[in-house]
């Protein structure tokens, strides 16, 4: 009998488990969605979003909304593992710890993308603009990947702390700022109708950050879960 379950099998098992559990109850997704909608409404009143100022602010609003609702999802996703001791259950299995990390990251990524996929059309309807462009889709994909790469690592630390309810955003936000800057800039560019070639700097930057953050998280994740 081989001793270790293959990396890919373990990873897909973790992703499958998270998706099945979430798509049944939809507790986390609906919370993320409602929260995101509330943030947009609060912005609307707080900033008096008339059409002129709005165009300049849309990119920022989208990413602030995604960032905030993302922490809800990350916290919840790790709390599920901690609730009935399931994290121990994962660690007891003969699988690579990094398979667990990537499994959780991919599931979190999917949840963020689902939130974005609903949020953006709603925003378009509310403000009667068309946000869709393939460039924007790419930015959302890259930006949220960097976000969940760091977020999954840090949430698996914060969940093991006594102050777990308040810690995640404090740990995550200062570290994730470079990704957010690049994502906001690229999003703003695409919304303003700039061409892809004029925004390549930001796209490359996003790709670079994603690679750096993902590989560092991948290298240190062991240290976060192994006692």
């Amino acid at each position: 009998m081989k001793s270790k379950t293959s990396f890919f099998k373990a990873l897909s098992a973790v992703v499958w488990k998270d998706l099945v559990a979430e798509l049944r109850g939809k507790e986390m997704l609906s919370a993320m969605m409602v929260f995101a909608l509330l943030v947009i409404f609060i912005f609307n009143f707080a900033l008096e979003l008339d059409p002129k100022t709005r165009n300049a602010l849309t990119a920022g609003i989208i990413w602030v909304t995604l960032t905030f609702s993302g922490t809800l999802g990350l916290n919840r996703s790790m709390a599920v593992e901690k609730d009935r001791g399931c994290l121990d259950g994962l660690l007891l299995a003969p699988v690579d710890r990094t398979a667990i990390y990537f499994g959780k990251s991919i599931a979190n990524w999917v949840f963020m993308l689902i939130t974005a996929a609903i949020l953006l059309p709603v925003y378009s309807i509310l403000y009667n603009t068309n946000l869709f462009s393939w460039g924007l889709v790419l930015v959302i994909l890259l930006g949220s990947e960097g976000y969940v790469a760091v977020g999954t690592l840090l949430s698996s630390m914060s969940i093991q702390a006594r102050t777990r309810d308040i810690l995640l955003p404090i740990l995550l936000f200062p570290v994730i700022i470079p990704v957010l800057i690049a994502a906001v800039k690229a999003t703003g560019g695409f919304l303003a109708g700039e061409t892809f070639s004029s925004l390549t700097t930001w796209i490359y930057l996003l790709i670079g950050y994603d690679v750096i953050f993902t590989s560092v998280a991948f290298m240190v994740f062991d240290a976060v879960v192994e006692e």
Partner: peptide, 16 residues
């Protein structure tokens, strides 16, 4: 872990 991740993000922030 956090000292490593944090220190890594600082130059990226500056660069951005």
């Amino acid at each position: 872990v956090y000292a490593i991740v944090g220190f890594l993000s600082v130059p990226l922030t500056f660069f951005s």
